[in-house]
Computed example of a mutant assay.
Amino acid sequence: MTTPISYFERMYAADPDPWSFETRWYDARKHALTVDALPARRYRSAFEPGCSTGMLTARLAARCDRLLAVDAVPAAVESAAARVADRPHVTVRAARMPHEWPDETFDLIVLSELGYYFADADLATLLDRSVSTLAPDGDLVAVHWRHPVEEHARSGDEVHAALSARPGLHRLTRHEEADFVLEVFSRDGRSVAQRAGLA
Rank of each mutant, 00 (worst) to 15 (best):
H170T: 14
T173L: 15
L169W: 00
H170I: 06
R174A: 10
D188H: 09
H175T: 08
L172A: 05
E183W: 03
D179Q: 11
D179T: 08
G168P: 09
A162S: 15
S164V: 06
S186F: 06
L163C: 07
L163M: 04
R187W: 09
E183L: 02
L182H: 08
S164R: 12
H175G: 00
D188Y: 10
D188W: 12
S164G: 12
D188N: 14
S186L: 02
L163N: 01
S164K: 08
P167W: 12
E176V: 10
L172T: 00
E176G: 04
A162T: 08
D188C: 11
L163S: 06
R187A: 02
E177C: 12
F185S: 03
H175M: 06
A178C: 00
A178P: 05
G189H: 08
R187H: 09
A165K: 04
P167T: 06
R166S: 09
G168C: 13
L172H: 02
L172C: 00
F180I: 02
D188R: 07
F185P: 03
S186N: 03
R171L: 07
D179N: 09
E177H: 07
F185I: 13
R187N: 11
S186V: 02
G168N: 09
D188Q: 09
R166A: 07
G189Y: 06
V184E: 01
A165V: 12
H175R: 10
V184Q: 01
P167E: 04
A165W: 00
